[in-house]
Amino acid sequence: MDTQWLEDVLVLLEEGNMTRAASRRNITQPAFSRRIRGLENWIGAPILTRGTNRIDIHAALSANENEIRALIARIRALRGRIANFDPESTTVAIAAQHAPIFSTFPEMALHAKQFYPSLKFRLRAGNHHDCVSLFLRGDTSMLLCYETESAEPLPFGETVRRATWGSDQLIPVVGGSLRYGVTSDASVASDTPAIVYPEDSYFGEVLGKAERSFGTQRFTHNPVCESAFSSGIKEMALKGLGVGWIPFSMAHREIETGELVSLANTLGHEPLAIALYADAREDAAVALLNVWSARHRSRGGLSASTPA
């Protein structure tokens, strides 16, 4: 469709007369009439009622005049964004799980700023399911989430590209006064309080499927709190409220200082991939995906805070 057809229609609506409309468009009336017929052919229905001595404009045009004007404005704006695209002056909307926003996104943002200093981010935080829904609806052009390393990539189709930022591990930790109940072999009593994930949360599903102790209520003798927010679980574990499972990238500094004790040697760990998805039709999203995936490849596939 030629956008000048829509502009012709607006002039025709304003003038109410083919001759005057053609004059305003600086073309002959026959040429103007041919362009109107071109629009009719594209629509598949007449927009003018042609009589012997008069031509009447179809009421559907008047009823949709505001929409026609808005459509022309959107097309012009789209044309300008494409013609003048600059990733550095773009805002990229990202649907992201709460955990990677806290544990990995700050480093990702700083790395992206090295290439696009003026780039802006709009984060839409949520659980795994909600983030996928936001991305599928087109509310964001990127998705950042944790995935179990054994899981298949999400089946988004050919319009979506996938990459990874790095790897991580879901590990059990304990802090506060409960640290002193950890034995020399890095184990705790089975009735130690636990901060568990809801079984229908993403980490709850991962830990439940693996039957990890202290992960969900079903595999815990003494659950004292249930939460789907890893950052909150970390803070509660630091205060000694209970054992909690959190990403290693979120806990490594506190493990190094001794504020948290890792129980992974006895309770195990769950490998995670930090996955990125981008709408292939969004240039800025693809540019970011390339920058982040290149960083992942240069580090040999490891997260900066994940032990080799």
Rank of each mutant, 00 (worst) to 15 (best):
F85G: 03
L272W: 07
I43C: 05
E40Q: 08
P106A: 09
T52L: 14
V173K: 12
N127I: 11
S187T: 14
R161S: 11
T19G: 04
Y277S: 13
N222K: 10
A95S: 15
M142W: 03
I68N: 04
G16P: 00
G51Q: 15
L238P: 01
F115A: 02
F102G: 01
Q29I: 04
P87W: 04
A63P: 10
Y146S: 07
A112S: 07
G157K: 09
T3H: 12
I36R: 00
N53I: 14
L119K: 09
N17S: 10
P46K: 03
F219D: 01
L61N: 02
P46T: 03
S249L: 07
E88P: 00
T148C: 11
E205S: 14
I75F: 06
R253F: 08
S103R: 05
K120E: 08
I94P: 03
S133M: 03
W165D: 06
K239G: 02
H221V: 12
A99N: 05
L263C: 06
P100N: 13
W165M: 08
P117F: 03
L110Q: 13
Y197E: 02
I68F: 09
E40R: 02
I94M: 04
V291Q: 06
T19A: 11
E199Y: 09
T183R: 14
S293A: 14
F115S: 04
E147P: 00
V261Q: 05
A22G: 03
R24T: 00
S141D: 02
T104S: 13
D283C: 07
N127R: 10
T183S: 15
I255G: 09
L6S: 12
I47C: 04
K209A: 13
F219R: 02
L289N: 05
L267S: 05
A95N: 08
H98I: 11
T164C: 13
D130G: 00
R79Q: 08
L154I: 15
Q169Y: 09
